[in-house]
Nucleic acid binder design. Structure first.
Length: 515
DNA sequence: CTGGGGAAGGGGCCC
DNA sequence: AGGGCCCCTTCCCCA
């Protein structure tokens, strides 16, 4: 009997153990399944989130495209219009203005227009922004300001995507914290870093130069001189327009400067100097001799010639400015300067648009007259040696050499965008008098160059020369891939696309093909 | 695609 | 020294 009891007890314990084991097994299975289930749920949720995000992006994209479609197709960055026109600015008005000649409806519909007839009675100023950032900001990027309203920080704020508070009255605008003297290196390093990103400046910052390049270079549309010019000339009106005053290279570089409301346009003017145009020159740096940069209320800053030579070779501590990557963030409070900037500080002169070519001339004179002619002299290298053809004078912007300072002056119009010579018939403007003279043949019909073998006449000698290949059969442009020859360089360029299968590739072809 | 003209930009040379 | 002119390059447009 006792044995039976023990047996039962053992059986019971065994059963209990088995039951426990079974429960444990079941729990384990449930746990495992639950874990798998949870994992699946989590993954599904993640996928849902990703899809939702994707959907939102798509919607955003569609919305943006709608906005773009509803807007004029080529809203231009305001920088684009900071060419000559900025010179018309009323210095005391503190506004920038673009000039549209009366009776010349040559602006495209989408062009930002500000009418300033040169009498200082500008009525409105249009700022049009185009950038990925601003587009992302949604519609309403076109902003108009009436006279006196323009906040000089406006463009920079917009460009940087930073929230902008419109200050109605520039005179009541709180003073900007611009203690330059405390952070010149930071400024410069920002600038240099940006330039370096652009791949056009292979040298570290100069300690005291103060122009600032900001914005996202990747968003910039780099146009060649020709590009911009053409773009501006393909407006509704095929005739000439003030659009040609735009600085060729002055495109979306994002250069901008801190503007004192009192000074208005000059900063924009100076910004144009440091535009893609000059930066694009073979990676050459710029040379700036000593320029006193005077900020109102601030201690004067000096551009020291010894410290501001920027050349193609790295001259300084690269890591030094790389440390300031963070400072690349656009800082609207940073005052920026350029030689021109400095000049305007020294000699603020009204540059209201005059019916003649005066405004460009005035501007340019402002740039080069005061001390700049002397400055050009200052760049003279080896002044006492060498013949007259030796290039002893160098462009302050691209370091290109010339044999006399006047050539430097003329050349620098390329960078500055000054076109002092205007056509009386169509208001086209030119940087060189001869170009104007050639242009005016369009109006006069003068074609002084006639072909000796046919009746054709030409306004430009080079066109005659090119035409004469028709008679001579000369085809100086040969395809390197198929021996085909062309009389027109453009023909070769187009032909090369046949080989590459590309439609838009550009193959620069120089006259080296000419034999 | 090819051929060709119109026109502007800009550097160099000469007087 | 400065202006006028030449020349080259480039882009655009059209047939």
């Amino acid at each position: 009997m006792a044995n039976c009891m023990v047996f039962h007890t053992q059986i019971a314990s065994i059963m209990e153990m088995l039951a426990n084991a079974a429960v444990a097994e079941i729990c384990k299975l449930v746990d495992d399944d639950y874990a798998v289930f949870r994992l699946e749920i989590t993954q599904s949720q993640k996928e849902n989130r990703a899809l939702r995000r994707k959907l939102q992006l798509q919607e955003l994209k569609v919305a943006r495209e709608r906005v773009l479609a509803s807007r004029p197709s080529s809203v231009k960055l305001v920088n684009r219009y900071r060419g000559m026109a900025r010179g018309e600015g009323n210095l005391t008005g503190g506004h920038r203005s673009l000039v549209k000649p009366v009776g010349h409806n040559t602006w495209r519909d989408d062009q930002p227009i500000t009418v300033d007839e040169g009498n200082g009675t500008s009525t409105q100023h249009v700022i049009v922004i185009e950038s990925a950032d601003t587009e992302a900001a949604g519609p309403g990027v076109k902003q108009e300001r009436s006279e006196g309203e323009e906040d000089p920080r406006h463009s920079s704020d917009i460009q940087t995507g930073a929230p902008h508070v419109v200050t109605k009255d520039p005179t009541t605008t709180p003073a900007q914290p611009r203690d330059i003297s405390r952070t010149p290196n930071a400024i410069l390093k920002s600038e240099t870093e940006t330039l370096t990103r652009l791949g056009r400046l292979g040298c570290p910052p100069t300690p005291r130069s103060e122009y600032l390049l900001y914005g996202n270079p990747s968003q910039r549309t780099v146009l060649s001189h020709r590009d911009s010019g053409d773009a501006l000339q393909t407006g509704n009106d095929p005739t000439c327009s003030y659009a040609t005053e735009m600085i060729p290279g002055d495109v979306p570089v994002g250069l901008d400067t801190q503007t004192n409301p009192i000074r208005g346009d000059w900063n924009q003017y100076s910004s144009s100097v440091y535009s893609e145009g000059f930066l694009d020159k073979k990676g050459e740096g710029l040379i700036v001799d000593e320029v006193t940069v005077k900020e109102e209320g601030d201690a004067p800053l000096i551009w020291n010639e010894d410290e501001t030579h920027l050349r193609g070779q790295s001259q300084g501590n690269t890591s030094d400015f790389l440390d300031y990557r963070e400072s690349l963030e656009p800082n609207p409070n940073i005052a920026t300067h350029s030689p021109l900037h400095a000049l305007r500080d020294r000699e603020p002169v009204s540059t209201s648009m005059a019916p003649s070519d005066s405004h460009g001339r005035i501007l340019f004179d402002q740039v080069l007259n005061s001390n700049d002619k002397a400055r050009v002299q200052a760049w003279e290298v080896g002044a006492t040696s060498g013949g007259s053809k030796e290039k002893r004078f160098f462009c302050m912007f691209c370091n290109k050499g010339f044999n006399c300072p006047q050539k430097v002056e003329i050349h620098q119009r390329v960078h500055i965008g000054v076109k002092p010579f205007s056509c009386t018939q169509c208001h086209m403007r030119f940087s060189q008098a001869w170009n104007l003279k050639i242009h005016q043949r369009v109006h006069t019909g003068e074609k002084p160059y006639s072909c000796s073998q046919c009746h054709m006449r030409f306004a430009q000698t080079c066109n005659l020369k090119r035409h004469q290949r028709v008679h001579t059969g000369e085809k100086p442009y040969s395809c390197p891939q198929c021996e085909k020859r062309f009389s027109h360089q453009h023909q070769l360029k187009m032909h090369l696309k046949v080989h590459t299968g590309e439609r838009a590739q550009y193959y620069p072809q120089t006259s080296s093909n000419e034999s």
